[in-house]
Write a protein that binds this DNA or RNA. Sequence first.
DNA 1: CGTGAAACATTAGCGGC
DNA 2: GCCGCTAATGTTTCACG
Lengths: 166, 166
Amino acid sequence: MTKIEMDAIDRRILAILQENGRLSNQEIAERVNLSPSPCLRRIRRLEESGVIRGYVALLDPRRLGLDLLAYVNVRLEKRSGPALSPRGGDVTHADLFRAAVQTWPEVVACYAMTGDMDYLLRVQVADMAHFSRFVQEQLLHHPSVIDVKTSFSLETFKETTALPIV
Amino acid sequence: MTKIEMDAIDRRILAILQENGRLSNQEIAERVNLSPSPCLRRIRRLEESGVIRGYVALLDPRRLGLDLLAYVNVRLEKRSGPALSPRGGDVTHADLFRAAVQTWPEVVACYAMTGDMDYLLRVQVADMAHFSRFVQEQLLHHPSVIDVKTSFSLETFKETTALPIV
DNA sequence: CGTGAAACATTAGCGGC
DNA sequence: GCCGCTAATGTTTCACG
């Protein structure tokens, strides 16, 4: 995990790009008082070093009919692995659960957490019917899951992908 | 909140753009089997209607030294407003808290939630020292905050800004 | 780091299905 | 209505000073 050297101009470029990832290189160069070529060289370096992970379009969930956002705390079975892999290695409940999470499109984020619940899922679905089906048929149906506790988002007051780079 | 008509091509364009927001219109047009101009017209329409909220660069928090991600549950004082605004309107604890949240850069998301805590904050900071200072000097210091409960992310297994568009 | 030129991309107008 | 062509304009990119 190479942490690269960055100066004030690099940080300004990052601040600009995490607000608007489609500005032209020319426009960015102007804002940081550079000509286009060194500015582009800096951006490429930030991309290649992994500081910039990628560029994405952000969509509006409500305009896509995804009106329900839930945070689900999940507790897993802790007893030793429920199965042996074909080659004899242990497969833990955590492994199974994490693999399942990758296949569930409604789960847009999954973290292992401190505290008395093991995982926190961010779940984005159309409505309560869909959520209920997801919990019953996927989450609680999963052999590694012992218990879930859900909170629903009533309103979003702040939500940004922009990190606080000082 | 106008929900606009979208066909299969529009959805394919959205799916492409939420994975890579910097593809050229030409490239996207090719992938959806359209010529550049109708493709661009569709993208502009999706932008103007608000389905596409914007384009951003995603940065790697760890490469920026932001190694600590916390989810903080916050409970607020419920008794009637602690102050009157100059023009006489009531200012609730919720109003005060939400305004403060906007000014705290380490809070990258804030939701009002169901359940026994009122708000859920996503907090991104360098280390425990910074987090501790934030909780003591900002959160607990705020007159509307009664109580906070924090969980820390140990590991991220899935995290995407791409919504499940079917 | 900046200049300049070639390659490439965007976008408005117009005609056709 | 929505598609695709063309042509003008703007942008990216790279060798070189």
